[in-house]
Lab assay of single mutants.
Amino acid sequence: ELVLALYDYQEKSPREVTMKKGDILTLLNSTNKDWWKVEVNDRQGFVPASYVKKLD
């Protein structure tokens, strides 16, 4: 499943990933309501769920 980055996000820990507004990311896990695991540029990590939106 793919998600769209709604905002820029700068990683604050090694478990997170940086994304730019408009990026298309692969959603790996959305079981946590606050932090979703995504893959971007061959890196996996977490981003705030409120910063991304699922693409239909």
Score class of each variant (00 low, 15 high):
P48V: 02
T31C: 12
T31S: 15
K53G: 10
D8I: 02
E1R: 14
T18S: 15
W35I: 03
K53C: 13
V52R: 01
V40Y: 13
L2N: 06
Q10E: 14
L25Y: 10
V47K: 00
K21G: 05
G45I: 06
Y9L: 01
D34M: 13
Y9P: 00
D42N: 15
R15E: 12
R43I: 08
Q44A: 11
G22W: 06
L6K: 06
A5H: 01
A5W: 02
E39T: 09
V3Y: 13
D56S: 13
V47T: 01
D8N: 08
K33W: 08
W35C: 06
V38P: 00
N32Y: 08
Y51G: 06
A49N: 03
L4D: 00
Y7V: 09
T26I: 15
E11H: 09
T26H: 12
Y51H: 12
V17T: 06
S13F: 07
D23A: 08
L2C: 08
V40D: 10
Q44G: 08
L4G: 03
P48L: 03
W36H: 03
G45T: 02
S13W: 06
G45N: 01
D42I: 06
K12H: 09
W35R: 03
K33R: 13
A49F: 03
N29P: 03
L4Q: 12
L27D: 01
F46E: 04
L4N: 03
Y7D: 08
A5T: 03
K33D: 11
E39V: 12
V17G: 02
E11L: 08
L55C: 11
F46L: 09
Y51N: 05
N32F: 09
M19R: 01
L2S: 08
V38C: 05
G45A: 04
S50M: 12
L6M: 09
V40T: 15
R43N: 07
K12D: 06
R43A: 06
A5I: 02
I24A: 03
K20I: 08
N32A: 09
N32M: 09
V40F: 15
T31F: 09
L25A: 09
D34T: 13
N32V: 05
V52C: 12
V47A: 04
D34F: 15
Q10H: 13
E11S: 15
D56Y: 11
L28Y: 04
A5L: 02
D56W: 10
L55K: 05
K20R: 13
E16T: 07
K20F: 12
L4M: 15
N29A: 10
K20C: 10
L28F: 04
L28V: 12
N29F: 06
R43V: 08
